[in-house]
């Protein structure tokens, strides 16, 4: 089972192969649940979100296009959207972006999970994120993980809209440049 590709497992899930479905769930449940827990903040909702993510993955497996991204990011993007919806539905307290950053999102040290194959990219991105000023990290985290619009962030941070837009833009463009330097394309 170890050598089966993510794509093959997803295809198996789509075609009703129970073994492939179970293997896919086992392979990604930690990351999906981790993201869900981070966004919604409680275990019960996080499990609901993670379950819904796999159901949606099964429903939309035929829409997965390998040219446009890898299976892990595809699944995580689904989880993010489901989690953001769950948060909006419950109108709970806004999650503090600082708490998210404290999870080691922006750090020069590689995370514990980064010994694997996807390691170098994630480690580089993590290090690049760590080099941004805190105000840019916060704005980016709120947009990227919590689905907040620039206007919402402006209200939550009590900072003018234009400033928030600049922070998001600068953060994204800086990350892009830093990663390009690493890639030496």
């Amino acid at each position: 089972m170890w050598s089966v590709s993510d794509e093959a497992l997803l295809a198996g899930l789509a075609s009703g192969d129970d073994e492939a479905a179970a293997a896919l769930v086992r392979r990604f449940q930690g990351r999906i649940y981790g993201l869900a827990l981070m966004i919604v903040g409680d275990e019960r909702t996080a499990e609901d979100v993670a379950q819904e993510t796999f159901v949606k993955a099964w429903q939309h497996a035929d829409a997965y296009d390998p040219r446009r991204g890898r299976v892990p990011t595809w699944l995580l993007a689904i989880a993010r959207n489901v989690a953001i919806d769950a948060v909006r539905m419950r109108r709970s307290e806004p999650i503090d972006p600082q708490a998210i950053l404290a999870l080691g999102m922006a750090s020069k040290d590689p995370g514990p999970e980064e010994q694997g194959s996807a390691a170098p990219d994630a480690a580089r991105l993590r290090a690049a994120l760590a080099r941004l000023p805190n105000e840019q990290q916060r704005a980016l985290v709120m947009a990227a993980f919590l689905g907040r619009t620039a206007r919402e962030i402006s209200e939550l941070e009590n900072v003018p809209l234009g400033t928030i837009k600049t922070r998001i833009r600068t953060a994204m463009l800086k990350l892009r440049v830093m990663l390009e330097v690493y890639h030496e394309r």
């Binding site: 129970d18 479905a21 179970a22 769930v25 086992r26 449940q29 930690g30 990351r31 649940y33 981790g34 993201l35 827990l37 981070m38 275990e43 996080a46 499990e47 993670a50 379950q51 796999f54 159901v55 991204g69 892990p72 990011t73 995580l76 993007a77 993010r80 999870l103 080691g104 999102m105 995370g111 514990p112 999970e113 996807a118 990219d121 994630a122 991105l125 993590r126 994120l129 980016l140 990227a144 993980f145 994204m172 990350l175 892009r176 990663l179």
Partner: peptide, 23 residues
């Protein structure tokens, strides 16, 4: 880049029985 940011989130094992309930 936006998608890759999601890969930075630390994994967290779900409660026991999760796999069975999803399937």
């Amino acid at each position: 880049l936006a998608d890759d940011l999601l890969l930075l989130v630390p994994p967290h094992e779900p409660p026991i029985g999760f796999e069975t309930r999803v399937l």
